[in-house]
Design a protein around this nucleic acid. Structure first.
Length: 333
DNA sequence: ACCTGTCAAGTCTGG
DNA sequence: CCAGACTTGACAGGT
């Protein structure tokens, strides 16, 4: 099994390369020239995209093929007071440059719209804002010229004291989405509400690939071991929306998220790094029937956590873990 | 240079 | 019905 590692949004190695610089609505309003204020927003966005490209070049240098973009590339992009603003006109080339680099180097990229995107909500205005946010993420990927292999990963959302009804409502709302949004979605189990089994059931009903977060599964489960769900999770990546796009030239490897608890009393919080043992136990279990896997590291130390994990993995070279590059390994079955 | 409160957005809990 | 927690990087405004 070939395993590629990636990280989220920002680097702790590359300095002054934030892809998430922003402007608050308060300071936007303070600027008396609205056109100038909008140009400033566009300058910040261009800087974020430029830093994103710098990070991708850093990734390229270390063979990091898996990366999650910041959702905050364009400040205030979906704010209610700025609906007349189309940032994609001014940022066309900046987005295209990022997408071109991704395609040229065969990278796997994604977004993770944050927890305000809730398709299980009973509130119409929240649903509308969620759809708007998803549209925005699709528009960014389209502006990069990336096909449906580039996904937007979300959670099911709130339970509203009735998970059955909430997940049914999620499914109903999903079915009402534009196919361009649908084909780019993946669903991830969360650490408080919807377990891996419950998330898997929704993925199966909708034909959506499931991203298994093994830390979330550890703190929020139905008594199963994570690998006991894997053969079914694997199927959600095959023969569904992940490959519905005729332009997809190769199957998309399944993806998991990994992180470690910050402390014994803060089990859900993310630690600086990632513990090798639980991850390796999982990888060994699934290696016999999983040809390829992408692993998103969600740790405070970002790419440094990735490099540290690779160092830890290198200690298992006598035990079936073959180091392939700075950010990929082969786990022998 | 460093510190603290705040930020557009949702949900859940507890008062 | 409302305040605070949750969680996170960065702003904004202070020293």
């Amino acid at each position: 099994m070939i395993v590629r590692f990636g990280y989220v949004a920002m680097s702790t190695v590359v300095k002054n390369a934030s892809p998430s610089k922003t402007m608050t609505m308060a300071s936007f309003t303070k600027l008396n020239n609205r056109d100038a204020a909008i140009r400033k927003l566009e300058r910040i966005a261009a800087e974020n995209l430029h830093n994103t490209l710098r990070l991708l070049k850093h990734n390229r240098a270390y063979d990091i093929k898996v990366y999650r973009f910041s959702s905050k590339l364009i400040p205030l992009a979906t704010h209610a007071d700025l609906t007349d603003w189309d940032p994609f006109i001014a940022l066309k080339d900046d987005f295209a440059d990022v997408g071109k680099y991704v395609r040229e180097h065969g990278m796997r990229v994604s977004f993770h719209p944050d927890h305000f995107t809730v398709l299980s909500t009973p509130r119409p205005e929240v649903l509308q804002n969620s759809i708007r946010d998803l549209q925005h993420h699709v528009q960014m990927l389209d502006a990069m010229g990336l096909n449906a292999m580039a996904k937007n990963n979300i959670h099911i959302g709130g339970a509203y004291k009735d998970k059955q009804t909430a997940s049914a409502r999620f499914e109903e709302n999903f079915r009402g989405l534009d196919p361009r949004i649908q084909e780019r979605l993946t669903l991830e189990n969360d650490d408080k509400t919807f377990t891996a089994q419950e998330t898997l059931a929704v993925c199966q009903n909708l034909g959506v690939p499931m991203v298994l977060d093994i830390h979330h599964q550890w703190v929020n489960n139905d008594g199963e071991k994570p690998w006991e769900l894997w053969s079914d999770i694997l199927k959600t990546w095959q023969g569904n929306l992940a490959q519905a796009d005729a332009t997809l030239d190769q199957p998309l490897p399944p993806k998991i998220h990994v992180s470690s608890p910050k402390s014994p009393t803060e089990l859900r919080s993310h630690a600086d790094g990632v513990e090798v043992a639980p991850l390796l136990a999982f990888l060994r279990e699934i290696a016999p029937y999983t040809p390829a896997l992408d692993v998103m590291i969600e740790a405070k130390s970002k790419d440094t956590a990735l490099f540290d994990l690779m160092k830890d993995l290198s200690n298992f070279s006598e035990e079936g873990v073959k180091i392939l590059s700075e950010a990929s390994v082969e786990v022998l079955a």
